[in-house]
Computed example of a mutant assay.
Amino acid sequence: MRWFEIALVVLTLFTGLVWLLDKLWWRKQRESRAGLLEAKEPVLVDYSRAFFPVLAAVLCLRSFVAEPFRIPSSSMMPTLLIGDFILVNKFAYGLRLPINNHKIVEIGEPERGDVVVFHPPQYPKQDWIKRVIGLPGDTIAYRDNTVYINGEALRYVDGGRYVGKGRGAEATGAHLLFEQLPGRPHPVLERDDVPFFMQGEGEWQVPPGYYFVMGDNRDNSEDSRFWPDGMHFLPEENLRGKAFLVWMHWDGSAGGVDFDRIGSDIP
């Protein structure tokens, strides 16, 4: 999506500049040369005047209000499925400039359990989505498929065996559990057939200005547990926004549109 953001900014600036130059200088020059005749407006100016308000509105909405994203992987199953199209609140954690993501207005900070879109530190040009588990100053541990926050183990409610569909059918048979994260209970998946060394066990101290994030599909998520040494935590400046709504779902291998998911809140 980064290329689209860059193109949108460039086109908005270009059409706005053309419209402004015409308003201040070019129109007067055309009218003076035309005399009593009607001055013909150049095609470039006509298109710029027509498209600039639309492009500016889209840029502002996308940069400061809400931005659409598509879920390409299974790392957030069962909360988010492959083929979900989601909306991300762009002002929940402060207003940020497009392209460079620099924060210009402080508004809020992530809360434990938020599902966030961000630039991972090891792949700064990509957009990833995970759940905030650890806040600055927390001690997070993961042992025996259990999350510990500041020494306290989270409680889990058994939901039976998960049945996937479409591109998520490979998760069929995984344990469906409801993780009782304080203030934000949510479903997670765990598998029995994952080797011990892939489970991402360990303990981490979250430094100030950083967050510890995990996918809900615990055995199929490249999250903070597996990031390279020195990069286990998500920097605050890499946040893009808070995911809050599924506005469309399309999975061709499951029959196309799933109308039941449209309009679903993201827990």
Results as ranks from 00 to 15, higher is better:
2 R>C: 01
3 W>Q: 06
5 E>S: 12
8 L>S: 05
8 L>T: 05
9 V>Y: 06
9 V>E: 04
10 V>R: 02
11 L>Y: 06
13 L>K: 11
15 T>H: 10
16 G>K: 04
16 G>S: 13
18 V>G: 03
21 L>D: 07
21 L>G: 10
23 K>D: 12
27 R>Y: 07
30 R>Y: 13
30 R>P: 01
31 E>P: 02
33 R>A: 08
35 G>S: 11
36 L>M: 09
43 V>R: 11
48 S>F: 04
48 S>I: 04
49 R>N: 05
50 A>E: 12
51 F>P: 00
52 F>V: 06
53 P>A: 02
55 L>E: 03
57 A>V: 14
58 V>K: 05
59 L>R: 02
60 C>V: 15
61 L>V: 13
65 V>Q: 15
66 A>H: 05
66 A>R: 00
70 R>C: 15
71 I>S: 07
71 I>T: 02
72 P>N: 07
72 P>D: 10
75 S>M: 09
75 S>W: 03
77 M>R: 15
78 P>N: 09
81 L>G: 06
83 G>V: 06
87 L>Q: 14
88 V>K: 12
88 V>Q: 05
92 A>Q: 08
95 L>F: 02
101 N>V: 10
103 K>S: 08
109 E>A: 08
109 E>T: 10
109 E>D: 03
112 R>N: 04
113 G>P: 02
117 V>I: 12
120 P>D: 14
126 Q>D: 14
127 D>N: 13
132 V>W: 07
132 V>A: 01
133 I>R: 07
134 G>P: 08
136 P>D: 03
137 G>I: 03
138 D>G: 05
139 T>I: 15
139 T>G: 09
140 I>C: 02
144 D>F: 10
144 D>H: 14
144 D>E: 12
145 N>V: 03
147 V>I: 14
147 V>L: 11
150 N>C: 07
151 G>T: 07
154 L>Y: 09
154 L>T: 06
156 Y>S: 04
157 V>S: 04
169 A>I: 12
169 A>C: 07
170 E>C: 11
174 A>W: 10
175 H>N: 08
178 F>Y: 15
180 Q>T: 03
182 P>L: 11
184 R>G: 01
189 L>S: 00
189 L>Y: 05
192 D>C: 00
192 D>P: 00
194 V>R: 13
195 P>G: 04
195 P>W: 00
210 Y>H: 15
211 Y>W: 06
212 F>Y: 09
213 V>Q: 04
214 M>Y: 00
218 R>K: 07
218 R>Q: 05
219 D>E: 10
221 S>A: 05
222 E>T: 00
223 D>P: 08
224 S>W: 13
227 W>R: 04
229 D>A: 09
229 D>H: 11
240 R>S: 08
242 K>D: 05
244 F>R: 15
249 H>C: 02
250 W>Y: 14
251 D>S: 03
251 D>A: 09
252 G>P: 11
253 S>N: 13
255 G>C: 04
256 G>A: 00
259 F>Y: 15
261 R>Q: 02
262 I>E: 09
264 S>I: 11
266 I>H: 04
266 I>D: 01
267 P>Q: 12
